[in-house]
């Protein structure tokens, strides 16, 4: 009878059948401890099959648009393809070897590093300054903030094409203005001259990365409590000291997020480089992303398999960055507790 009473006790203790059938979490069977945490866990607890039902759409999404293409990509990277796109057979690891042996791989990797580091660093510095300016109240601030969003809202292709026109050697307004001011006597070939091309692309990269960065920083600045600042002012800290010793350290989470997300965006950026660099032959100014595209469709290799192998390398590269990002997120959660 003891057994039976225990049973009844149990059923009365945990009236929720889902919870009873669910995990063996001992916390949910201890009704005596009035903990908020325990109660929250109990409400959220459902039968695994029910949970699976609710998770199904998300799982299907991940399987359909992440996992399946990834498997296809890997499959393609191991195939031998004709120039027409027809699969002729299996290539083993040949495509990977060909990518690694590609004579322009070094240039492309160097370009990628220069591109990502330059764009992200310049964006962060300018973004910090502009965010500082945009949190100060001044007439028309709302319109300025709107204006800052515009490069973000415009399609990257359109922005890039606009810059192609601005940079143009013969009719570009930038050359026109510089010549009008007598700063230069002959136009600068911003996109065709090898010493200028990367610089010109970085400018566009910074231009389109700024809005997001600025708004992350505005949010970060808004989260700094006023009393800390007031206390520092009372203690006689100079504006520069306040910025260096209070604002910047408190901005650390925002800086981290802005840096890592920008690195991912900028690394994956295709339209800017593809559009601005389209007149230049070879891979002189390509990053790993445009390199991958050209391998498949534009270059004399025109090899889908090789391009897929390059794609796998790109995924691995970006995975490293994502791992760092996740680590930072963890770090944030720990510090916010």
């Amino acid at each position: 009878m003891r057994f039976a009473s225990a049973m009844t006790e149990r059923t009365t203790v945990t009236p929720d059948p889902a919870a009873a059938a669910g995990s063996g979490d001992p916390g949910s069977r201890m009704p005596s401890r009035p903990s908020r945490r325990r109660r929250a866990g109990r409400i959220g607890q459902v039968h695994p099959l029910v949970a699976l039902l609710w998770l199904a759409p998300a799982l299907a999404l991940i399987l359909g648009v992440v996992l399946y293409p990834a498997i296809k990509l890997f499959d393609a990277s191991r195939g031998e393809y004709s120039i027409t796109g027809l699969r002729k057979g299996d290539a083993g690891w040949d495509n990977y070897a060909k990518v690694l042996a590609h004579p322009d791989l070094g240039t492309v990797l160097l370009n990628t590093v220069v591109w990502v580091v330059a764009v992200v660093a310049v964006t962060i510095v300018i973004g910090l300054a502009l965010a500082q300016f945009l949190v100060k109240p001044f007439p028309g601030r709302r319109f300025v903030r709107w204006a800052v969003i515009i490069p973000w809202a415009a399609s990257l292709i359109i922005t890039s094409q606009l810059f192609v026109l601005l940079y143009d050697y013969n009719y570009g307004i930038i050359n026109h203005v510089l010549q009008g001011l007598h700063l230069i006597s002959t136009p600068i070939d911003f996109l065709g001259n090898d010493s200028w091309t990367m610089f010109s692309m970085v400018v566009v990269g910074v231009f389109v990365s700024l809005p997001f960065t600025i708004f992350v920083f505005i949010a970060g600045l808004g989260a700094i409590p006023d009393d800390v600042m007031e206390a520092a002012t009372v203690d006689g800290a100079s504006p520069w000291q306040r910025y260096w010793n209070i604002t910047l350290p408190l901005m650390r989470p925002a800086l981290m997020i802005a840096t890592v997300l920008n690195v991912i965006y900028v690394f994956n950026s295709f339209p800017i480089i593809y559009t601005l660099n389209d007149r230049n032959p070879g891979y002189l100014h390509d990053t790993t992303i445009t390199f991958m595209y050209k391998l498949a469709f534009k270059s004399q290799e025109k090899d889908v398999g090789m391009s897929a192998a390059a794609g796998i390398f790109n995924v691995l590269l970006i995975l490293v960055v994502v791992a760092i990002y996740l680590k930072i997120i963890n770090w944030r959660e720990e510090t916010s507790r």
């Binding site: 393609a76 393809y81 027409t84 796109g85 027809l86 699969r87 498949a296 469709f297 534009k298 889908v304």
Partner: peptide, 9 residues
């Protein structure tokens, strides 16, 4: 070029 190659793949 890209589309036709993809279709044949």
């Amino acid at each position: 070029d890209q589309q036709s190659s993809t279709m044949i793949q």
